[in-house]
């Protein structure tokens, strides 16, 4: 009896994927994604370079001029210290948004009363025209570090909360019933079933919030004490030095892209099953 069972299990244990790989005829290795991305960026930069050179340098710039301006800024130490100045409120504001946004989204999605009471603020808060409200924050929080953290927090907490909330809403009822069938309490169901099941949505929220946090950072540096990368942008713009103005802009975009990859990396670490389940080509 036990012997036949082992045999049967062995048969089933051969994963469908392994079989397919062996059966498939050899085919040309597909071009790696990073090669395609690099090529795409190079083509974009080349087009920008050639088209941008004909534009009056007050109204536009082009990659080689921006690179030269960037080199000057970096060598003078201005760029590095501005980046450091910007990153501090960015990291703190974003982290607070993560720590508040995820639990907020979880409970709003899970408990009907909280959804009715708080959901409207989350939805409304997401659309809040924060730029208009920054001047109102200043009398309360001053012009320094605190107000920048607050602006970054307010811009990034809502996309995190909304995505988490939506994710909770689409957790299959059957998974929650697994918890109920095994007599799990509400808080255990929330932590051990809903939270992991919602992770892909949370991660999407973290990515969206990243972009908004970068924008918020620059807004804060424009409208409070002028400082950091936003400060470089506004000072360069005021002296019509368009190439220099582009340096922090490009740097911020590169930074946001890198952070986005970092979130993707973390996602693969904390939710490895997700990437394995989701569609591959």
């Amino acid at each position: 009896m036990s012997e036949t069972r082992v045999e049967m299990v062995d048969q089933i244990m051969t994963l469908p994927d392994e079989q397919n790989e062996a059966d498939k005829p050899a085919r040309r290795a597909p071009m790696p994604s990073w090669v395609i991305t690099t090529a795409s960026v190079i083509i974009f930069l080349l087009l920008w370079e050639f088209l941008g050179k004909d534009v009056n340098p007050m109204f536009g710039s082009y990659p080689s001029a921006i690179a030269v301006a960037g080199w000057d800024l970096a060598r003078s130490g201005q760029l590095g210290s501005a980046l450091l100045e910007s990153l501090q409120p960015f990291v703190i504001g974003y982290l607070i948004a993560v720590l508040i946004g995820i639990p907020l989204g979880l409970v709003v999605g899970r408990f009907r009363v909280l959804e009715a009471a708080l959901g409207i603020f989350v939805t409304g808060g997401y659309a809040m025209p924060l730029v208009a409200l920054v001047p109102l924050l200043v009398p309360w929080l001053g012009l320094g570090f605190a107000v920048k953290v607050a602006v970054i927090f307010l811009m990034s907490v809502f996309p995190i909360a909304i995505n988490t909330w939506l994710g909770v809403k689409v957790v299959p009822k059957s998974l929650i019933e697994v918890g109920r069938a095994f007599v799990a309490s509400d808080s255990v169901i929330l932590r051990r079933i809903i939270l992991p099941a919602t992770l892909p949505y949370i991660m999407a929220g973290l990515r969206l919030a990243l972009g908004r946090a970068v924008v918020a950072m620059v807004i804060a540096e424009f409208f409070t004490a002028i400082s950091g990368l936003g400060g470089i942008i506004i000072n360069a713009a005021n002296s019509f030095d368009t190439a220099t103005m582009f340096v922090p802009i490009v740097l911020l975009m590169v930074m946001a892209t890198a952070l986005n990859s970092l979130v993707g990396y973390i996602e693969r670490k904390v939710a490895p099953w997700q990437t394995e389940i989701s569609a591959r080509d």
Binding site: S174, L175, E177, V178, A181, F182, V183, I193, P196, A197, L199, A271, W273, I277
Partner: peptide
Amino acid sequence: FDRGLVFQHAELLPW
């Protein structure tokens, strides 16, 4: 715990 349920589609927790 006096009753144990086997679900139609197993419903294992994927993580």
